[in-house]
Amino acid sequence: MEQHQEECGSVLFGDELEVCLQNIKEGDESSREKFIADAKPFIAGVVGRLCGRSLSWERDDELSIGLIAFNEAIDRFKEKMGVPFTAFARMVIRSRVTDYLRKETRWNRVELHMSEGPQESTISQVENDASLERYIKETANRERIEEIKDYNLKITRLGITFQELVKSSPKHRDTRETLIRAACYIVEHSSLYDTLQVSKRLPMREVEMGTGISRKVLERGRKYIIGIAVLLYHREEYIYLNSYVRLPQGGAD
């Protein structure tokens, strides 16, 4: 199972995603099952963040709602939306779970007045294609900006600015790929990433040992490695950024 979860990252954020979705659309139910199963940690992450508490699959309805919403997202996703699938799925999950939570509170308060009416209307509203598209676009824009802001905040905390990233960004593709490989190595070994967060310094020796990249190169691309590592580590959060930047996933292995 653990192994499976590890893989999910690659499915949900990797290059195979489109192929996978295509298969599902064509009616490959088994791959749909597998895909949803892979996406479970992602769904749990999104719903958990929304609810502000950790959830368990056995206990909490929110996760089931999220799961259903994810399934819905697979069906409704279209390439032309201009939004990465993950982001779209997140949007759908969030809106469904929010709706559920709202209903819950209403249930709790005035159980008698529970009615399907408003929910129906919201659905029909969402169903309205034009407004849905607009909604998606607006949400995507907002989320993307938030993502970038958050990313900026995170790297600032590590003492890096975008300007510095520009300066240390390698011009040659080979160098870039080498550095990205180093960043991947750090992300894959979360202990290294934690050291980075705490010491705000690149765990040079470990990376050097693990990847075989010379210290000089690492030193030179230090900031770039950190910038990319942060981006990759928060794959689930920085959906837009990660879907935009097609980095070689798990290149180290």
Partner: peptide, 19 residues
């Protein structure tokens, strides 16, 4: 993708991971 806007320029990240 525009990450930051400066007075006369802006910082972007490209699809291949360049800032």
């Amino acid at each position: 993708l525009v990450l930051e806007i400066k007075k006369r320029s802006c910082i972007v990240i490209t699809g291949d991971g360049q800032y």
